[in-house]
Nucleic acid binder design. Sequence first.
DNA 1: CTCTCGATTACCT
DNA 2: GGTAATCGAGAGC
Length: 202
Amino acid sequence: MARLLPSAFFERDTVKVAPDLLGKYLVRLKDRERLIGRIVEVEAYRGSDDPASHAFRGLTPRNAAMFGDPGHAYVYFTYGHHYCLNVTTQKAGTPGAVLLRALQPVEGINAMRRFRPNVPDSELTNGPGKLTKAFAIDKSLNEQDMTIRGPLFVADSEKGDLEIWSSPRVGIREGLDRFWRFYLRGNAYVSKRGMRERKFRD
DNA sequence: CTCTCGATTACCT
DNA sequence: GGTAATCGAGAGC
């Protein structure tokens, strides 16, 4: 299998890491099954300069992972229903995380169907709360090191030309002037097409 | 302790 | 298009 992304990949500016994660692979090992999804949509969240970030007002028990080592999982529960998965960025002490908003199923789709019964394949992983359900990710994986071959990690991809677009982040009220959502435009698993989208790079 | 509201989703009209 | 579901983190007193 492809090599892991090292800690140094994540120990950079969150807004740089986020688009670089597009096309990479999220790998989940659970009960002898392997689930793999290609990352097609992400958002960057920083710290005291980012009013939309959980870390904006400093360290709390919930957001502690954002202040920890880079390349670890930050999993939180929201709306009384859903878990969201982030990968942490920046060196310990500097908060940052990239929210994984959508994946393209690559391997283990039967397991994903089992974890998310009665939904069409096109909707298994096209949203942050959907992909955690399809990949059996909950708070027990919070702070998991995703740079080692454990239950949850990120694998590199071959270099390829990706058409990356950006837009304001989804579901927030502040920070809408920042184009910190990044996605592979045209990919069928992107959660929604952004209004005000801009081409980011090829 | 109490209150508000959310980095969402599914289902309704 | 609209909104109920459902819980806990975080803020304020």
